[in-house]
Simulated scan of single mutants.
Amino acid sequence: MTTFRVTTEEARQFGRVAVIYGGLSSERVISLRSGAEVLGGLQRAGVDVFGIDLGGEQGDLNPLTQLMDAEFDRAFLILHGPGGEDGTLQGVLEMLGKPYTGSGVAASALGMDKVRCKQLWAGAGLPTPAYAVLTESTDLTAVGEQLGWPIFVKPAHEGSSIGIAKVTNLDELKKAYQNAAELDSLVLAERWMSGDEFTVGVLNGQALPVIKLETSHDFYDFDAKYESDDTRYLFEHGLNETQEQALKQLVIDAFDTAGCEGWARIDVMQDGEGAFQLLEVNTAPGMTDHSLVPMAAAQQGVSFEQLVVEILRQTVR
C-alpha cells in the first residue's frame, strides 16, 4: 500500500515541525510511545519533523530552555497529563508565537481538570455522573450514602486511568482516597455507571466512528488500555442508529462546550437506564498501537499518516 505523502507546497507551509512529547508527568512512558508513533507518521508523510523529549532529552536544560533553544515553525503536541495537556505548555507556545495542535490554554486546562469539566458540562445541561470532591475533612460515610456503592475514585488531574479505583465499601473508599491523594491534591468520587462504555474521537468538529470497550478487568484501567491483549474494541457496538447519532451529538456538544479545538477523545458510559453519561475529555489522546483515535480513523478509511497530517493542518488554517 502506498504511504500518504503531503505535497511539496504543503510541506513548505508546515515548515519545520516539532513533535513535543515525553514530559515529566506520570504518563511520560505513554507519551514517549505516542510521540514516537506521531514522529514516524509525519516523517513517512514527507513532513520536515523532529522530536523534543520535553524535560527528558537533555538533562542539563529545563523544558522552557529546550523550547526557546529549538528552531521550529509549529508544534505537534502529544504530551499527556500535567505540564503538557493542561494548558501550561500551550501558554508557553502562545508566548513564543508558535502555532500548535489541539486545544488552547483554557480548554486544555478544563479538560485536564475532571471536576471543573464536569461542573461546566452539568451547568450546560449535559449529562455526567453524580460526584463528590474528596478532601481530608470529607465525611466519607456521607459520600457513600450520597453516591451509593460501588464508587469510582479518581485523581482529578491524571489521565490514562492512573490512580483510579473502584470501591465497594467505606474501608476501600478510605484507602482509594489516600492512594489518589498521593498523586493529586484534588480527588473525585463518582457514581459507578453499570452500563456499557464507549469512546468517541473528534476530528475537526466531526465525530469519528463510535467504539465500544469491553475488558475482563473491573473497568478500563491502565493495563486494559495499554498492556492487555484481551481488551475488545468493537465497532459493532449494539447501538441503533438513533442511539448512535445521539451519542455522537452529545460528544460534539461536550467538545464544543469545553471550548476544545482540532481533535480530542471523549469517554462516555451508559447508566442503568441506558442513558449516556459523559466521563471526561482527553485533549491530547494517546497515539500508541493500542490507542483509540487512530483505530477509529482507520475504521473510516483514514491512515495514520493522513490522521497526523490532518491534525497538523489546523495549525496553518
Rank of each mutant, 00 (worst) to 15 (best):
V187P: 13
G15T: 13
Q249W: 05
E305W: 06
A142P: 06
Q206S: 15
E236V: 01
A156S: 15
G102R: 01
Y233L: 11
L32Q: 13
A45P: 02
V202I: 15
P82H: 08
G81R: 01
T128E: 03
P127H: 07
V210L: 04
E37A: 14
C117M: 15
V293C: 05
L110Q: 12
V115I: 15
A176M: 11
F276H: 07
G125I: 10
T288M: 02
L67K: 13
Y233F: 15
A284C: 03
V281P: 02
P150T: 11
L279P: 01
N282C: 08
D196R: 14
M269D: 00
G159Q: 09
S185P: 06
W192I: 00
Y177G: 10
G46F: 15
G102V: 00
L61D: 09
G35Q: 12
K225P: 05
M95S: 15
T138L: 11
T215N: 05
K154I: 00
Q90H: 11
R265G: 05
I30F: 13
W263T: 04
S34C: 03
G35L: 10
L279T: 02
V308N: 05
Y233T: 10
V133S: 05
A246D: 03
G81E: 04
L64P: 00
G23P: 06
E57T: 10
K248W: 01
E227S: 11
R74F: 11
V281T: 10
D69P: 03
G201N: 04
L79C: 09
T101Q: 02
S216L: 02
F4Q: 06
Q146H: 12
V202F: 10
P99D: 00
V17G: 05
T3K: 15
E71Y: 01
G111M: 07
D221V: 04
G23A: 03
L239Y: 14
L239W: 14
V309F: 01
G97P: 01
E9N: 10
F14C: 14
T7Q: 02
M68H: 07
A18W: 05
S26F: 04
E197T: 08
E9P: 02
Q249Y: 03
G23I: 06
R33A: 13
V316D: 00
A75V: 06
T315V: 05
R232Y: 07
A298V: 12
D86R: 00
N204T: 10
G111V: 01
G205I: 11
D48V: 11
G148C: 01
E10H: 05
R191I: 00
L213W: 00
G41V: 09
F255T: 06
R265L: 09
W192G: 03
V302L: 14
G22H: 07
Y177R: 03
K212C: 02
N204W: 13
W263Q: 10
L250V: 07
T199A: 13
K98Y: 06
S291M: 04
R116D: 11
G144R: 08
L170H: 14
V187W: 12
A36C: 12
G125A: 08
T283M: 05
E214I: 09
Y233M: 02
F72I: 07
T135C: 11
V143I: 14
F235L: 03
S26K: 09
S31Q: 14
P129N: 07
D53I: 05
E236S: 06
S185N: 15
